[in-house]
């Protein structure tokens, strides 16, 4: 039976989802983000079904899955970026070190300050490189020149960009290459000194060399930051992450230590996906 025929069969009869399989690698410093029974609707259609994931502190957690599986939606829920969308509804809860993210009393702005985010396409602001980096401090009302300068250098060094741009900090950030722009965005995200870094396919718009640099950077950043990364690229997930969550059609299928999940997946769906049979 061909692949398309199989898809047609699946469409006609909704698939039965088994409870997810867990064998995650525990971090010594505990759980940073606890996603509990999290469901999400866009209007009438449900995009996420009962997601339960414990994101380990100081580790890299990758979200993988075929297009439309809800991995970006889940990631963008973690810093409430989905609030911008009308008709959005959630149930369940996510807690950041015990504090809830959803609810009327949650200060979304304070929450986002604890969650740095890097987007799919580099989105530097139309300002100078230095102004870009200190933007999170600017919105906090920091005006101390010395403090800002220190933050610029620290963040750019942290994003492995300092040596390339230290002589042109006052030039427009739009003059940088794509890979540099993305690292600038990472520098901007860590300038606010967040607890968690959310990365939404950070390398999908970059060439292989730039991708490699970002991956090395992720390796350096982990430990200091808890990183959640969405990626389309399974090799990348294998290279950079400690834990991997495989999602399919809005369901969590399997969540576990990356090396185990990629070598001996427990769920049949996971195996089909990572061996390239669909997706």
């Amino acid at each position: 039976m061909s692949v398309t025929a199989a898809a047609a069969v699946e469409k006609s009869a909704p698939p039965v989802f088994l409870p997810p399989v867990y064998h995650d690698r525990q971090s010594a410093s505990g759980v940073q983000l606890e996603i509990k029974d999290f469901c999400l609707w866009y209007g009438q259609s449900q995009a996420l079904h009962d997601i339960n994931i414990n994101v380990q502190k100081g580790m890299v957690t990758a979200l993988i899955g075929p297009s439309g599986c809800g991995k970006s939606t889940l990631l963008r829920s973690l810093n409430r970026m989905n609030d911008l969308i009308d008709n959005l509804r959630t149930t369940g809860q996510v807690t950041l070190e015990g504090e809830p993210l959803f609810g009327n009393k949650v200060d979304v702005i304070a929450l986002r300050k604890r969650m740095g985010m890097v987007f799919q396409k580099p989105n530097p602001f139309p300002m100078t490189i230095a102004e870009n980096v200190v933007y999170p401090l600017k919105v906090d009302g920091v005006t101390d020149k010395a403090l800002l300068q220190e933050a610029v250098e620290k963040s750019l060094r942290g994003a492995a960009l300092w040596d390339e741009v230290k002589d042109r900090l006052n030039q427009s950030a739009l003059g940088l290459s794509g890979g540099q722009q993305q690292r600038l965005c990472i520098a901007r995200a860590i300038a606010g000194n967040p607890d968690v870094l959310l990365m939404d396919e950070p390398c999908s718009a970059l060439d292989p060399i730039a991708t490699l640099k970002i991956e090395e950077l992720i390796d350096e950043l982990k430990g200091n930051y808890t990183i959640v990364i969405v990626t389309h690229n399974m090799q990348q997930a294998g290279r950079v992450s400690d834990n991997t969550a495989f999602m399919y059609l809005g369901h969590l299928i399997e969540y576990g230590a990356t090396d185990v999940l990629f070598t001996t997946p427990k769920a049949a769906k996971t195996e089909e996906y990572i061996t390239g049979r669909f997706g």
């Binding site: 986002r112 989105n123 919105v139």
Partner: peptide
């Protein structure tokens, strides 16, 4: 989105 993600109102 970039600005909001930085914690800007």
């Amino acid at each position: 989105e970039g600005s909001l993600a930085c914690g800007a109102s």
